[in-house]
Design a protein around this nucleic acid. Structure first.
Length: 863
RNA sequence: GCCGGAGUGGCGGAAUGGCAGACGCGCUAGACUCAAAAUCUGGUAUCCGUAAGGGUGUGCGGGUUCGACUCCCGCCUCCGGUACCA
C-alpha cells in the first residue's frame, strides 16, 4: 500500500488528512440544525501582515480548535470559522512606497495566512471565510454605519485631534501612547480637523452595567470598567464676583466645599476670555497658546511640574461667600466634567501641588484619625496646618454656615448632607461623569471603508440611498494625502462628485475612511451568513447561533475592540437586528508566547545572533562576556522570532499543537523553547509504535481482542476521566500529560486491547487530529473520527480493593500501609494503630487526636 | 501612583487544605550497537550520612489548622494595563 508509511511520518499523513477534511467538508457548520445543541466558538481574526503567522497566533487557534473538535464528538453542532481583518496601515504604507495597490498586497498576504492556518489542521468551516476589505463585506460595515447615523449616533466635529504627521492621519486617543503613535512610535501633535465621531458615551451606562454578567477574565472586566470610568459626585455653580456669569464645576467631593480656596478653568474654557481682567489678557493669551501648541507628549512630560495663570477675577464660594481667585491651568481638562474645578488643596494632591507652587491658601477642614495618619506616614499636625495633603477619610470641621453644618460628620454622610442642601438651594445637584469619550471614527487614509455620506452644495450632509451600497473605494495612482492635508480619497476627482438619484442635489462624497476597528466590530455576525447579498445576516441564523459561546483572543484587545464591538452590538440590539444585547458570553485570553533571549551583566538584551553557546553557557560573540538566558517578547531586532512553518516542517503540525498546549496553562505567559517540541514529538512516535508495528505497517502484535486486565482497565478509565475533565476546563497541558502516562504504561505491556487502542485514539484526536485520523483508519475505520462519540468512563472500573494510606504523626510522614478502600474513618484509625511499625512509634506517647481522610491519610497527634 | 496577574528543581510546569516537584526538557549511568542515531531501563530539589535513615525546602515575615504551595494579615520582586478624569 502506497500510503502505508510504517514509521510515524507527519509529512505524509498531515497533508493527506487536511485534504480529506477539505474535500469532504468535514467541519461544515449546519445552520439552524435544531436537532443538536449549537456551539459558536470564535477566534480573534488576524490582520494578514506580510510577515506571516508567528507562534503566538496558533496558540489561541489551537486552543479553540481542540475545544471545537471535542465538542463535536460530544454531539454539538459547532460553528468555527476564520477570516481576515485586512484593512490597515502596513498595506497602505507599502502602496505609498511602491505604488502596489493595497488589495494586491492584501490578497497575497491572505493566501500566505490561509496556507499556514491550513497546515495546522484547524477545523474551520472554510466556506465561511470572510475578508473585511471585500466590498461584499464592507457593504454591510457601511450599512451598520448608516444605522448608527440614522439613530443620531454619528456626528461631525471640528476639534483638536491627535494628528500624526509621519503617518499622515489622525489617531484615536487609544492609539496614542505617551504622545507617540502606537503604530510606528512617531510623534503626535494636536491639530484641529473635521472628524466623524460616534456617540459611544450615550451607551456608557449600559456598557458598564452589562459587564457584570459576562463570563470574562476579572482583570479584563475591571479594565473596561476603568476605561468607562464612572464617577458619582455633584455639579455646582460658583457665582463670579461682580459678574452675571456662573461657573459650573464637577466634584466627587462636595463635602470639601468649605475647603475650596481657588478655582481652575481649563485653558480652553469658554468663559476664560470673558472673565479675564484686561491687565491679565496678554499673559492668559500666551498661556492658552502655549497649551494649545503643546503636543500630547509635552503635556505628559510636564505632568510633574504644574503651570498656570491667574485670570484676574474671583468667584464666590457658595457656602461661605468668600471670594476665591480663578486660575487657568492645563491640569484641568476641557473634555472632562465641565472643564472647571473647585480646588481644595488640603484634600486633593493635584490642587495641593498647584497651591504650593503658586502660594495659594491651603485650608484643612477634614481631620483624619491618628492611626490613619500614621499608616500614611504623615503627621496629624501637618495635615491640620495645611502642610500636608489628606485625601482619605476623616471627620469634617470648620464646615458650617448659618443654614447648614456638616461639622463632626464622616465623609460619606457629609457628602450626602451637603449635596441635599445644595440641591435645595438650587445651586447644585448630584451628578455622574464618565471618563469614556466619544469615539473618533474617521481616518485620513485610503485603505479603509469609505463612509456612505455626501456633503451637499447646500451645506447639508446625508447618507447615500441604501441600494447604492457598497460605496466602493476608487482606484488611485497616489495613496498619499493631498498637499493641503486632505485625505487620499480627495484625489479621486470623479468619484468625489455625487448627484442624488431622486432629489438631484449635487455634492461631494466624504473623503475620510473608517478606522480598522470598523470591520472587526461585527465580523462574528458575518460568519453566520457570509454569502448573503440581501442583508448582513439572516435573523433566523442569528437567533440560532448567537451569542458566541467562547471567544479566544489576546488581552491587548481588552478595552478597544471588545468595547467598540459591544457598543455596535448593543445598538444593533436596540434596532432589533440581533437577539442578544451582548455578543460574547465567555471570553478567554491566551497568554503571550515569549522568545528566548539573553542579557549581559548590565541587563542589556543581546540579539540572538550575537550569542555563542558553550558547555551549556552563553557568551557574547564579541566581548566574550557571559550572558544569562531569559524570556523576552519575540522581536525582529532580538532575532528570537520562531517561525511556525519551520517547526511544522521538522516536527509536524500535531507536535506543534501539542507542544504549544503542553507548555503550560493557556492563559499564562510562556517562553518558547524548541527543545521542548522534541518531547511531544517523541510522545507521538511512541503512541504510533504502541499501535503500529513499524516493521510491517500492520497493527502491533501486542494488540488483540483478549479481555483486558483490571490494571489496564483502570488506567484507561482514569485516562478517559482525566482527559475529559481537563479538556472541558481547557487544561490541555494536564490532559496531554495523562495521555503520556497512558502511552508510557501501555507500551510496556505485552498485551494491548484493541478497543482500548481505539478509545485512546479518540482521546488523542482533538489535540493531535492528523495522527489520530490516520491511526483510526488503520484500526479499521473508513470514516473520519470527527463525529465519533466521545468515550465515557465507568466509575466502577476506577475502584481498587486496597489503597496505600499515608500515616502521619504530628503531621510528619512516618509510614505507609495498605488499607481496604472502603474502610471508614474509625476503621482506618484503629487499623493504623494496630500496625506494628506505627505502634512502635506510638509507644510511650499520649494520643491526643486522630484525623483520617478516606483513601488518603491518617494523622495521629501525640504528646 | 492606581488597577490587574504572577513568584515552586538547572528549565517549562503539576498539585487549590491531605505524601511538593506529576508530565516533559536537560543532565547522567546502563542495555542494544563494530560505532553512532533511534529506542529501552534506572537516577536526577537540597543538606547530613558509606548506608538504612533523618533534617530543610514552594519570593520574605507573621497567623489560622491535626495538617498550608494552597486560606488570612503585612511586605518584596517581576510582568501587563493605566495615568492630572477633579
Amino acid at each position: 500500500m502506497s500510503d502505508n508509511h510504517t514509521p510515524y511520518s507527519p509529512a505524509q499523513i498531515e497533508p493527506k488528512w487536511q485534504d480529506y477534511w477539505r474535500v469532504n467538508k468535514t467541519f461544515k457548520a449546519i445552520d439552524c440544525d435544531y436537532s443538536r445543541p449549537k456551539l459558536y466558538v470564535l477566534d480573534m481574526f488576524p490582520y494578514p501582515s506580510g510577515d506571516g503567522l508567528h507562534v503566538g497566533h496558533p496558540e489561541g487557534y489551537t486552543a479553540s480548535d481542540i475545544w471545537c473538535r471535542y465538542k463535536r464528538m460530544r454531539g454539538y453542532n459547532v460553528l468555527h470559522a476564520m477570516g481576515w481583518d485586512a484593512f490597515g496601515l502596513p498595506a497602505e504604507q507599502y502602496a505609498v512606497r511602491t505604488g502596489t495597490h493595497p488589495a494586491e498586497t492584501t490578497a497575497k498576504n491572505v493566501d500566505t495566512f490561509r496556507r499556514q492556518l491550513e497546515s495546522f489542521g484547524f477545523s474551520f468551516d472554510w466556506d465561511r471565510e470572510i475578508n473585511t476589505t471585500d466590498p461584499k463585506y464592507y457593504k454591510w460595515t457601511q450599512w451598520i454605519f448608516a444605522k448608527l447615523y440614522e439613530k443620531g449616533l454619528a456626528y461631525e466635529s471640528k476639534q483638536p485631534v491627535n494628528w500624526c504627521p509621519e503617518l499622515g492621519t489622525v489617531l484615536a486617543n487609544e492609539e496614542v501612547i505617551n504622545g507617540r503613535s502606537e503604530v510606528g512610535n512617531y510623534p503626535v501633535i494636536r491639530k484641529p480637523m473635521r472628524q466623524w465621531v460616534l456617540k459611544i458615551t450615550e451607551y456608557a451606562e449600559r456598557l458598564l452595567a452589562g459587564i457584570d454578567d459576562l463570563d470574562w477574565p476579572e482583570g479584563t472586566k475591571e479594565m473596561q470598567k476603568n476605561w468607562i470610568g464612572k464617577s458619582t459626585g455633584a455639579e455646582l455653580f460658583f457665582q463670579v464676583q461682580d459678574s452675571e456669569e456662573q461657573i459650573k464645576v464637577y466634584t466627587t467631593r462636595p463635602d470639601t466645599l468649605f475647603g475650596a480656596t481657588y478655582m481652575v478653568l481649563a485653558p480652553e474654557h469658554p468663559l476664560v476670555d470673558k472673565l479675564c481682567a484686561s491687565e491679565r489678557k496678554a499673559a492668559i493669551r500666551a498661556y492658552q497658546e502655549a497649551a494649545a501648541a503643546k503636543s500630547e507628549l509635552d503635556r505628559s512630560e510636564l505632568n510633574k511640574d504644574k503651570t498656570g495663570e491667574f485670570i484676574g477675577a474671583y468667584a464666590i464660594n457658595p457656602v461661605n461667600s468668600q471670594p476665591i481667585p480663578i486660575w487657568i491651568s492645563d491640569y484641568v481638562l476641557i473634555s472632562y466634567g465641565s472643564g472647571a474645578i473647585m480646588a481644595v488643596p488640603a484634600h486633593d494632591s493635584r490642587d495641593f501641588e498647584f497651591a504650593s507652587k503658586f502660594g495659594l491658601p491651603i485650608k484643612c477642614i477634614l481631620r483624619p484619625s491618628e492611626e490613619d495618619c500614621q499608616a500614611a506616614g504623615l503627621e496629624l499636625a501637618d495635615v491640620l496646618a495645611g502642610k500636608a495633603c489628606w485625601e482619605g477619610e476623616g471627620e469634617l470641621f470648620d464646615s458650617a454656615n448659618a443654614e447648614i453644618s456638616i461639622n463632626g460628620l464622616p465623609v460619606p454622610e457629609a457628602k450626602k448632607k451637603i449635596s441635599d442642601w445644595l440641591e435645595s438651594k438650587g445651586i447644585g445637584k448630584a451628578s455622574v461623569n464618565y471618563k469614556l469619550r466619544d469615539w473618533l471614527f474617521s481616518r485620513q487614509r485610503y485603505w479603509g471603508e469609505p463612509f456612505p455620506l455626501v456633503h451637499y452644495e447646500d451645506g447639508s450632509v446625508g447618507l447615500v440611498p441604501e441600494d447604492e451600497l457598497p460605496v466602493l473605494l476608487p482606484e488611485l495612482e497616489d495613496y498619499k494625502p493631498t498637499a493641503d492635508g486632505e485625505p487620499p480619497l480627495a484625489r479621486a476627482k470623479q468619484w468625489l462628485q455625487y448627484q442624488h438619484p431622486t432629489t438631484g442635489k449635487r455634492g461631494l462624497r466624504e473623503t475620510n475612511t473608517m478606522p480598522q476597528w470598523a470591520g472587526s466590530c461585527w465580523y462574528y455576525l458575518r460568519y453566520l451568513d457570509p454569502h448573503n447579498d440581501e442583508r448582513g445576516w439572516d435573523p433566523e441564523k442569528e437567533k440560532y447561533w448567537m451569542p458566541v459561546d467562547l471567544y479566544i483572543g489576546g488581552s491587548e484587545h481588552a478595552v478597544l475592540h471588545l468595547l467598540y464591538s459591544r457598543f455596535w452590538h448593543m445598538v444593533l440590539y436596540d434596532l432589533g437586528h440581533v437577539s442578544h444585547p451582548e455578543p460574547w458570553k465567555r471570553l478567554i485570553h491566551q497568554g503571550m508566547i515569549l522568545g528566548i533571549s539573553y542579557k549581559d551583566q548590565r541587563g542589556v538584551l543581546v540579539a540572538n545572533d550575537m550569542v555563542e553557546h558553550r558547555d551549556g553557557k552563553h557568551f557574547h560573540k564579541e566581548s566574550g562576556e557571559e550572558l544569562t538566558m531569559l524570556p523576552a517578547k519575540m522581536s525582529k531586532s532580538l532575532k528570537n522570532v520562531v517561525n511556525p512553518d519551520e517547526i511544522i516542517e521538522r516536527y509536524g503540525a500535531d507536535a506543534f499543537r501539542l507542544y504549544e498546549m503542553f507548555m503550560g496553562p493557556l492563559t499564562e505567559v510562556k517562553p518558547w523553547n524548541t527543545d521542548g517540541v522534541e518531547g511531544v514529538y517523541r510522545f507521538l512516535h511512541k503512541a504510533w509504535r504502541m499501535i503500529i508495528d513499524t516493521q510491517s505497517g500492520e497493527l502491533a502484535a501486542e494488540i488483540s481482542d483478549e479481555a483486558p486486565g483490571d490494571e489496564a482497565e483502570r488506567l484507561l478509565h482514569q485516562t478517559i476521566k482525566k482527559v475529559s475533565e481537563d479538556i472541558e476546563s481547557l487544561s490541555y497541558n494536564t490532559a496531554i500529560s495523562q495521555l503520556m502516562i497512558y502511552v508510557n504504561e501501555t507500551s510496556r505491556s505485552a498485551k494491548r486491547n484493541l478497543e482500548h487502542m481505539k478509545t485512546f485514539v479518540l482521546l488523542l484526536s482533538p489535540l493531535a487530529p492528523h495522527i489520530a485520523e490516520e491511526l483510526w483508519q488503520r484500526l479499521g475505520h473508513k470514516e473520519t473520527l470527527a463525529y465519533e462519540p466521545w468515550p465515557k468512563y465507568d466509575e466502577s472500573k476506577l475502584k481498587v480493593a486496597e489503597v496505600e494510606i499515608l500515616v502521619q504523626i504530628n503531621g510528619k510522614p512516618r509510614g505507609r500501609i495498605m488499607l481496604p478502600m472502603e474502610a471508614d474513618k474509625d476503621e482506618m484509625i484503629s487499623l493504623v494503630q494496630k500496625d506494628e511499625q506505627i505502634a512502635k512509634l506510638l509507644t510511650g506517647k499520649n494520643i491526643i487526636k486522630s484525623v483520617a481522610v478516606p483513601g488518603r491519610l491518617v494523622n495521629i497527634v501525640v504528646k
